[in-house]
Design a protein around this nucleic acid. Structure first.
Length: 369
DNA sequence: GTATGCTTTCGGC
DNA sequence: TTACGGCCGAAAGCATAC
């Protein structure tokens, strides 16, 4: 009989904006808006992250900068450009700290992580609860960064728990309260349920996780197929077997820029793509990665997204062939619409390691079946 | 029909 | 004059194979 799993999810609060508050404590108490400026005009760009003060006035991620400025005029707000390298340094130190307290560790993005602490907690919930609280304190003492932390029997519940109370929240779901905790929450809180799935569920009168729990397994199978149907059936009951696993590499490397002016001329656009390709290919090379998929992404004048991609049997690593392929992808993309392109991007994905690591990993994979 | 893998779009920060 | 990033992983859509 194995003791139950205990998983902790840590989410660093309004991370980019909080890093700016750390750098300049005078900002605390003011609205802080971290922006990505596109360079097209002096104020053109969008909000990346805002602190809770700014959010209280309605400022949100993705909002145009001018709109945030209008909302916050006369509010003594700070508008700052993103400084990713600075945030990355802070993140790396925090992740190293967290990793040191986990039996198994999984970082997700720059500001989130899962910790499997089953063994060190001896499966004891009260011990895990204390640990979760200590982790929050340690991160705050070492880096001055607050976080929202959740713990539960698996990744599904831990993630929903950390989201329950923020910023600076701590939500621990005891084994005997899992079902009651989940019951009143909207189904959208479950990882894997997006807009479309939410709509389908709404169509059969399901809004909350309690509602979902009342749907027979067979009905979920009819609506969503065997695999996804079974996943939803389990999720409604707080059951999830996804392991906490170290993610060694990013799954994709991409870059996107805003064009100086909208265009659909390949001669005008391709030089930009070419620069982006050189950049992502060298990033991949630095990590010893070859890639099987290349994508070209266009954000059109109406802000709709169009993309084209191609996957190859044999992994690529050359910038020259990537440029050649991306040129064709750009032409394909343009032929699918009459709109002009505003922003252009490229993406590498479907990675395979190069060199000795590749051999080792493929052998390991075969060995493990 | 369902699983799988690839392509395209969505959405969070 | 009607304004709007860059990056990531998740979700949805689709083709193919069994």
């Amino acid at each position: 009989m194995s003791s139950p799993r205990i998983v902790i999810h840590v989410d660093l609060d309004y991370f980019f904006a909080q890093c700016e508050e750390k750098r300049n404590p005078n900002l605390k108490g003011k609205p802080v808006v971290v922006c990505v400026y596109s360079g097209r005009t002096s104020e053109s760009g969008a909000v990346s992250t805002a602190n809770y003060n700014a959010r209280s006035f309605g400022v949100k991620s993705g909002m145009p900068i001018f709109q945030a400025k209008r909302i916050l005029r006369d509010k003594d707000a700070a508008f700052l450009p993103v400084d990713k390298p600075y945030y990355q340094e802070i993140s790396s130190r925090i992740m190293a700290l967290l990793r040191g307290h986990a039996d198994k560790f999984e970082q997700v993005g720059i500001d989130e992580a899962f910790l499997d602490v089953s063994a060190q907690s001896h499966g004891d919930f009260a011990t895990a609860k204390k640990l979760a609280s200590e982790l929050k304190s340690r991160v705050y003492e070492q880096e001055g960064i607050t976080s929202s932390v959740g713990s539960g029997p698996n990744k599904l519940v831990a993630k929903i728990a950390s989201d329950q109370q923020k910023p600076n929240g701590l939500t621990t779901v005891a084994p005997d309260s899992i079902l009651d905790f989940l019951a009143p929450l909207e189904v959208r809180r479950i990882v894997g349920i997006g807009k479309k799935t939410e709509q389908i569920l709404q169509g059969i009168g399901v809004k909350t996780i309690a509602d979902l729990r009342a749907v027979p397994a067979e009905r979920l199978r009819e609506l969503f197929g065997r695999t996804f149907g079974a996943y939803l059936f389990d999720a409604a009951r707080g059951i999830d077997d996804e392991p906490v696993v170290e993610r060694d590499e990013r799954e994709q490397i991409s870059r996107i820029v805003t064009l100086k002016r909208n265009s659909r001329s390949p001669e005008e656009i391709f030089p930009e793509i070419s620069k982006l390709i050189d950049d992502v290919v060298s990033k991949a090379a630095d990590k010893g990665l070859a890639f099987k998929t290349i994508s070209v992404i266009g954000i059109m004048e109406d802000l709709s997204t169009h993309s084209r991609s191609e996957t190859f049997e044999t992994p690529l690593d050359s910038a020259e062939s990537s440029r050649r392929i991306s040129r064709v992808l750009l032409e394909n993309l343009l032929s699918g619409t009459t709109l002009e392109i505003r922003r252009i991007g490229v993406k590498l994905s479907n990675f395979a390691s190069t060199g000795s690591t590749a051999k080792f990993q493929s052998t390991l994979k075969e060995f493990l079946g």
